[in-house]
């Protein structure tokens, strides 16, 4: 910074606010250390993962060629098959989300502090959903293929499994955030614990659950487009095949189809969310 015209006596100011200056100095050292550490790890990664400008350059040139070949996007001769695969993708996402929401519903209550007093049950439920969440959808798809064979059904089950973990975590958080007075009111008028949950807790958490479900439906449509890569149904199979056979114009067409579908589902689900939940419960 240039010397200020208004306060020429900087030394005096520094002396007067010595504590402030020193404090910011320490902060600066911490910042510098963090940035240096991050840069160091990045450098290590670049070396270890064999990044090189030559490779990046030739790759980008290749990508440019592919992009050129992508115009104009065409469905080739298989428009009908692609549409069918796309419908399959949406169906996989829809069923997977719905099943996961249903199964995670009781798990959410088991993992919430205010509905489950037993610490062991809570701990086990949470670790269970954590470990399910730690495994990617694609891995679950591979495992389910071993059970029900290749095809979209394995995809439904894969989406379901990986979402059970996510949903039960979100649900338990929503349940823990509620106002407990409604439940106490039900109990005070002679209701049982089940009544308290049904009339005191469920009405409060339902809007959150539904809006989370709709949100996940959209993101699952995205996941469902790729599980076909390992053979679990949907449009991913065609996409991977077209990329491997260098049919770039068809690749572009499939990606456009996916983009349009996801945008449409986003639109519908946000409309539905507004209709069912109302605007104000959007963030809770």
């Amino acid at each position: 910074m240039k010397t200020s015209r208004m306060f020429p006596d900087q030394a005096a100011i520094r002396a007067r606010h010595a504590a402030l200056v020193a404090g910011s100095q320490r902060e600066r050292w911490v910042t510098l250390a963090v940035v240096l550490a991050m840069a160091g790890v990045a450098l290590l990664a670049i070396v270890r993962l064999e990044f090189s400008f030559a490779r990046l350059g030739s790759g980008i040139v290749q990508l440019g060629t592919f992009l050129g070949l992508m115009v104009p996007p065409t469905p080739g001769t298989q428009l009908w098959a692609l549409l069918k695969a796309l419908a399959e993708t949406v169906a996989i996402a829809f069923l997977g989300t719905l099943l996961a929401a249903l199964i995670a519903f009781p798990l959410g209550f088991l993992a919430a502090r205010n509905t489950m007093a037993n610490r062991l049950v809570r701990f086990l439920t949470r670790r269970f959903s954590d470990s399910i969440r730690g495994v990617d959808t694609l891995i679950w798809a591979l495992i389910w293929i071993n059970v029900v064979g290749l095809g979209p059904f394995a995809g439904v089950l894969a989406i379901m499994t990986s979402d059970i973990g996510a949903f039960s975590k979100l649900y338990s958080e929503a349940i823990e955030a509620i106002d407990r007075r409604a439940g106490e009111g039900v109990t005070s008028t002679g209701g049982s614990r089940v009544h308290a949950i049904r009339f005191g807790i469920v009405p409060q958490v339902m809007p959150v659950l539904i809006s989370q479900m709709l949100y996940y439906f959209e993101s699952n449509t995205r996941s469902a487009t790729i599980i076909g890569i390992v053979g679990a149904g949907g449009i991913g199979l065609y996409l991977a095949e077209m990329i491997r056979t260098y049919e770039w114009d068809q690749v572009a067409f499939i990606i456009l189809m996916i983009l349009v579908t996801v945008a449409a589902i986003d639109f519908v689900s946000s409309r539905l969310r507004l209709a069912i939940v109302g605007e104000r419960t959007g963030r809770l």
């Binding site: 990508l63 790729i226 990606i255």
Partner: peptide, 27 residues
């Protein structure tokens, strides 16, 4: 929107063809 709607594994598939096998396309 485009960057986050196309799943990363699709980008990876395309980049593997362009940059060759290995961690670079993954990154």
């Amino acid at each position: 929107e485009f960057c986050r709607t196309v799943p990363e594994i699709v980008f990876a598939l395309i980049f593997v063809v362009a940059f060759g096998l290995g961690p670079v396309p993954g990154v």
